[in-house]
Design a protein around this nucleic acid. Structure first.
Length: 315
DNA sequence: ATTCTAATAT
DNA sequence: CATATTAGAA
């Protein structure tokens, strides 16, 4: 039924950038296609053929062939993760040895919204304005690899609820009777995630976008020449740091090995949207968010495969 | 077509 | 609980 997707699991390794290529956020906004076009890549994958399919998200540009495990690579540490494939439904069918033929019925691991990731989310929403903050746009602004519209949509929902709750309590307070004890629940017991995220004021009262000159999303295009960052983010402090996405999946291996797979954020395929007004794209808008990284606090759930995008850290 | 809200499932 | 998925409406 819905087994025609999510085969990205197949060959991550080919897409795995070496730690050396862990580029700062500055380059994070470069689409992989662009990067390749510019010849900037690591000598990791010998075969770097890539086709752009207009998949909504699927980063697995890997052909349904055999999975060619990256030979040496990973100069840092043995980043070889035990490819634990999800049996998925059915239960039968081994297909373990030989070629890692991930059943196409693989689902992507739960996305863990770390503060950093959430920060990006909030920033994106903040710059877009509540009105323009729709999943698709947010996703594009965030430019986080692996992020799907559903991911954002889901989180956005929760976030909106959070804002709503906050509004309810910060304003009327004891207004209605039905939602009486929302105060403590919302203000205090809130997840640390949202709690540590400064919620832009304009978020709470709709009807007025913060930035009147929001920048239309521009698919990073021809960027000859080097560093040219436009820091027009008028939000909060920014720290100089490297942004890396830590990829960790927990398996049934009791091993203490910290297999953090770093893969760089990749831009989703650029989708040229038809904007009503014919605007000339001139400058690539790049949000200069810089996040900090933190210690590996991997909340190891029991047997639950979790995909952690960013290391969590206090903001 | 995309998004929203809600309900539901994992 | 935190996300994912789905359904139905706008």
């Amino acid at each position: 039924m819905r087994d025609d997707d999510s085969n990205w699991f197949a060959k991550w390794e080919e897409q795995l950038p070496s730690p050396e290529e862990l580029m700062p956020l500055s380059q994070t906004l470069i689409t992989p296609d662009l990067a390749i076009a510019f010849d900037i890549r690591n000598s990791n994958s010998p075969n770097h053929y890539q086709h752009h399919q207009n998949s909504p998200l699927s980063l697995p540009p890997a052909p349904p062939s055999q999975v060619q495990n990256t030979p040496s690579s990973q100069p840092n540490s043995s980043a070889d993760f035990d490819s634990d494939e999800l049996g998925g439904t059915g239960g039968g069918a081994g297909a373990a040895s030989g070629g890692e033929e991930p059943a196409r019925t693989l689902k992507r691991p739960r996305l863990v919204w770390t503060p950093q990731l959430h920060k990006r989310f909030v920033d994106a929403v903040g710059h877009l304005g509540i009105k323009n903050a729709v999943p698709k746009t947010i996703m594009q602004i965030m430019s986080v690899d692996g992020l799907t519209r559903e991911n954002v949509a889901s989180h956005l929902q929760k976030y909106r609820l959070y804002l709503k709750r906050m509004q309810g309590i910060s304003n009327g307070g004891g207004g209605g009777g039905v939602t009486g004890n929302a105060s403590m629940t919302a203000a205090g017991g809130d997840s640390d995630l949202f709690a540590s995220t400064p919620v832009p004021a304009h978020f709470l009262h709709p009807g007025r976008p913060n930035s009147e000159h929001f920048l239309p999303y521009v698919p990073v295009a021809a960027m000859h020449h080097h560093h040219q960052m436009a820091a027009m983010v008028g939000n909060h402090h920014h720290h100089l740091q490297q942004q890396q996405q830590h990829f960790r999946h927990l398996g049934t291996s009791p091993s203490n090995g910290q297999f953090d797979h770093l893969f760089l954020s990749r831009q989703s395929q650029q989708q040229v949207q038809r904007m009503g007004t014919s605007m000339q794209i001139s400058n690539p808008v790049m949000a200069s968010y810089v996040e900090d990284l933190e210690s590996p606090s991997a909340a190891t759930a029991n047997g639950t495969k979790v995909l952690t995008l960013f290391p969590i850290g206090d903001v």
